[in-house]
Design a protein around this nucleic acid. Structure first.
Lengths: 196, 196
DNA sequence: TCATTAACCAAACGATCGCTTGCTTTATAT
DNA sequence: ATATAAAGCAAGCGATCGTTTGGTTAATGA
């Protein structure tokens, strides 16, 4: 029964892994994964290109780390928003607002989740798909609580809403409509279950 | 009054410009603009990389040509679909179906319009934006015919629908729901004007 | 204090990128 | 039949790509 774990020291205070992650998030979100070079990222945090590989084994893995953090933040924002709200339609509306706020006013991490397509990650594409599915399951739960006629209506509502919300970043301009009013307008267009 | 036009010969029959355009459309649609190299395109049509530049001055211009053709095809499909239909909501529904069919079952040209972001084109980004706006204006016209309460409701409906439709390609699987039924389900979720 | 090691730097590797230049083939109009 | 130009080919340009390798520095735990 020999101990296989080696004694490891804690990360240092001047560790710039998180700064690198931030730079990757903003660049991937603003210009796309393939349009961002590792040298740009290194320059953004003031390190040399090769130094990235001390923190991440590849550019793909860096993307996965950013994507993971992005999903985590959206999930957290949505869960925090619905907490304490009872009415199912109200829960859905505040969830949509939180989703949209994370996408628009939130950091770059959330934007990466919507902008970067899983296949861009190459080998790690499945990881991104799994993360995205995990979040959409959270959304499915909120819709399952609604009294909709059948399962296909629930599915359609989920895809309609998520699609419309995720597309907002293509036309959103800060300072005009807020995420809150956008969601109110979208939800106002919906027939809330009283249709056949 | 000298004739400034030079006598030009017609294109040859073995011209492979259209084949090159097709290859660019499928590659840009399936793998993205930056993930596609000019060598891949050349290999797909059986020509050498440098030969591309006989037909197009740059990779960016090639994208603009594909994008332009994509917008043209979607516009044509939508205009053909609404032709002869009178009821405004019916016109909108068949337009959405045509839009979705062009995106999913249609060629790769239409998919490029939704997948590739204008900023990917570099200098020619404004060209792509102008093309996209032109199409959305067509859609705005269809929605203007509806009796919606105000201008913000019209705008919200346009953005909701186009967003949801354009997002479909992220989850669509051929052989399951058809574009027609997807649109019916989406439209079935909407309150058709009778709300405040 | 001092050995350890986290966190880089410095320099380059081969591969691939978009693109250019000069030459060749061949369909076409006359 | 022949001149002309369309539509490439052949070869390589300089730049940039993601990544590796070996050495350096300084924060940290004992």
């Amino acid at each position: 029964m020999a101990r296989t774990t080696v004694k490891e020291r804690a990360p240092r205070q001047d560790n710039r892994r998180s700064a690198l992650l931030d730079a990757a998030a903003t660049h991937f979100a603003d210009r796309g994964f393939h349009a961002t070079s590792t040298r740009e990222l290194a320059a953004a945090v003031g390190m040399l290109p090769g130094s990235i590989y001390y923190h991440f084994p590849s550019k793909n893995d860096l993307l996965v780390a950013v994507y993971d953090e992005g999903v985590r933040r959206i999930e957290a924002a949505v869960e925090r928003a619905v907490d304490g709200v009872d009415d199912p339609w109200q829960r859905l509306e505040v969830a949509c607002t939180a989703h949209l706020e994370a996408l628009l006013d939130g950091g770059a991490y959330a934007r990466v989740v919507v902008r970067v397509q899983p296949e861009d990650a190459g080998d790690a594409a499945d990881d991104l798909i799994a993360l995205r599915d995990r979040y959409e399951a959270l959304f499915s739960g909120l819709i399952a609580a609604l009294d909709l006629p059948d399962v296909s209506a629930r599915r359609a509502l989920r895809l309609l809403l998520l699609g419309a919300l995720n597309w907002v970043q293509h036309w959103y301009r800060p300072g005009r409509d807020t995420p809150r009013t956008i969601v109110r307008r979208f939800m106002g267009l919906l027939a809330r279950g009283e249709t056949a």
